[in-house]
Nucleic acid binder design. Structure first.
Lengths: 247, 247
DNA sequence: CAGTGGTCTAGACCACTAA
DNA sequence: TAGTGGTCTAGACCACTGG
């Protein structure tokens, strides 16, 4: 946040709290405030922009609703670090015998550099002939396969990822992207479909070919919304569940 | 809302706005304020309960977030009337050639009074041998079947529904429940699954047996949360889609 | 202890709606 | 014009955290 411009940008006809919220969103999207870091207090914002504390509070509340910030009494306001493992359990029942949710282990079956298929290159915002890192990854619980994943990464920014032996990669990829390649995943779009299992999926998941499977396509994004990873996960339909309430 | 008790109920250690929100929620759930009706203004609430307008505002904002109320500047605060047709389009692509969403027509294939299966009686909170109205209903777009539905209603409260010829029931059932039986649906729980089409579903949806289908189980609730209708809808998996954003 | 966010007050002015 | 919600101000006191 600029130290020399205590003037809120944006259309002056917009409410102050809107313009402040936009300003805060810009700071986060630009990566000037990183996930886990502390954001300015409402008192500081109020003084800096010469607005009432209640107005600053309203802007912060917006970003808390959006999931960009979280607040802790006595500690401060922080940029939220997303938890992607939650999304798995929103769609699948991965329970052990005791009924507890279990994080599946990840086993990379194959990794190579190859030209991306057109639909992947397009999703990642790259040219039709871009090179990518392709992975086939199996996720298991207690040795049982539960998800089969195809993953594509842009070869350039993720070159260092190739130096890490596949056996040393743990159950989560995003922390490795961050530590090895400096690529921070902060949001993702997911699309759900259902289809009949093809022969390859059936073999990996140890089900009959033609049995229903759930397909989740995910585009993971970094700071500023830049696409970082394309991923297609397939899981057994009989482990899928999703519930909502409608009002 | 009682005219003689300007005292907010609930644990006095709870914030005022929480206790007021609970009070408002009670009025709505008890059906004393019906969907579409006007709720008291924040000024009235502030004076009646002897709190600051801002505090009343905060309570109202909670219920707006929950989808129970909606506010219109200059007009007032109203109890929200839910739109269930919207939920269909959240899960399925029902587009005509021009790409517009189309509300499917509903055709009741069969209607009878019969003892409920145990799982339906349990969901509706009735005894194991309760009588119900069973319906088989097909939903079509441009003559093409898109959803096959099994529906169960408790026989008692919905007795008058049997007097209406099935041919006179339009594309939406809930308005008929309201006008003919005085049963108002205000919320619902939905659970999504995927399975392989059985022979009956395959016939109704004109797909191959074994092809993947999406199953939506819905329990519709009336005022106060009382279960009113159990419904199981099956649709072709290739018309299913669902997207989310994760942060 | 100082600093933070959580709750609450008591007003102000505005834009919009309906009578 | 009176009543509504939308925005904004300028404080208060509290509970909690950290040094």
């Amino acid at each position: 946040m600029s130290r020399h411009d205590p003037e809120l940008a944006g259309d002056r006809r917009l409410p102050l709290y809107q313009r402040l919220a936009d300003e805060l969103r810009r700071e986060i999207n630009a990566g000037r405030w990183k996930p886990g870091e502390r954001a300015p207090s409402e008192t500081w914002l109020a003084e800096h922009f010469e607005i009432a504390p209640g107005t600053a509070r309203q802007a912060i509340a917006m970003l808390v609703d959006e999931g960009l910030l979280e607040r802790f009494r006595g500690k401060g306001t922080f940029v939220r670090r997303p938890r992607f493992d939650h999304s798995l359990f929103r769609f699948f029942r991965f329970r052990d015998r005791s009924g507890e949710n279990r994080m599946p282990e990840g086993r990379i079956l194959h990794r190579e550099v190859a030209p991306m298929p057109d639909h992947v290159a397009e999703a990642l915002g790259l040219g039709a002939d871009a090179l990518g890192i392709a992975m086939s990854r199996l996720r298991l619980i207690g040795g049982e396969p539960v998800l089969a994943e195809e993953i594509w990464l842009p070869a350039g920014p993720f070159a260092d990822f190739l130096e890490i032996p596949v056996g040393e990669v743990g159950p989560l990829l995003y922390p490795v992207y961050e530590s090895a390649c400096g690529q921070l995943v902060v949001s993702a779009d997911e699309a759900l479909r259902a289809e009949a299992a093809g022969p390859e999926t059936a073999r990996l998941l140890q089900i009959d070919a033609g049995a229903p499977v759930i397909v989740i396509d995910r585009l993971a994004r970094g700071i500023g919304g830049a696409p970082l990873e394309w991923r297609r996960s397939r899981g057994r339909a009989d482990q899928f569940h999703y519930t909502t309430e409608i009002r």
